[in-house]
Amino acid sequence: MKTAGARTPIALVPPAAVGVAFLVLPTVALVIRAPWSDLATIYRSNDITSALRISIETSLQALVLSLILGVPLAWLLARSTAPGIAVVRALVTVPLVLPPVVGGLALFLALGRNGVAGRYLDRWFGITLPFTQHGVVLAEAFVAMPFLVVTVEGAFRTADRGLEEAAATLGAGRLRVFSRVTLPLIVPSLAAGSVLCWARALGEFGATLLFAGNLPGATQTMPLLILYAFNNKPQDAVALSLPLLVVAVVILGLLRDRWLRPAAAS
């Protein structure tokens, strides 16, 4: 691609360079200013273990929930010819553009103890969601699931229908065509969508704070712990950010080398 590079308009280079600096510098600053020698002490004094555990548990649960609900939804959005499907698509992608804090508030109004649906959950089943770990999962899934849905929907849309037809002529019913042909075909996109979804859930902050609170040992995830630390001992917040930075780098590496390679589909 040397020829393409040679034809870049010069005027685009300076703003692009500033853009790179703007995006990279803060991360570099984080690494430079991290209190490397005191990491162990800081991690011990801030109960990082339980926040990390809650973060990982809830984000994985949110991913599972997103897969269970999101994959069928993505299939319907991609393939259904039902009237109004475009409206449904617009509605389910609202959380993509909605500020997470507003999302958390909305969740509270829907599923809170006095919420539109939450009051019945409480009254009939004795289920309370806000300020619990399940609440964290819901808040994260609410914000993260659309990432999975959008990615997987695109894959369902472009998956080779010819193979599905061939499977049907071989006697496979619709569910078998879906599970044995369509789903395996979109595995690369499913993986990429899952990583995006999980990363978004792991970093979720606003919706979690409003819907599940910030209770250490129960609903306090890593992002919330970082906020808490930042208000008291800013230096600790820097140290606590490092594990999330590592996770981000690992995710980037996975996406690059495993799942976003075009050849992975064959």
Binding site: G162, A166, T169, G171, G173, V177
Partner: peptide, 29 residues
């Protein structure tokens, strides 16, 4: 529907399942 007709079709572009081995393609039906 197609899946209950038991009519074998050889498509022009073959349409073999790329994620399955040859033996599993043939065993699919």
């Amino acid at each position: 529907p197609a899946e209950r007709r038991r009519i074998g079709v050889v498509f022009q572009d073959h349409r073999l399942f790329p994620h399955q081995r040859v033996i599993d393609n043939v065993a699919f039906g």
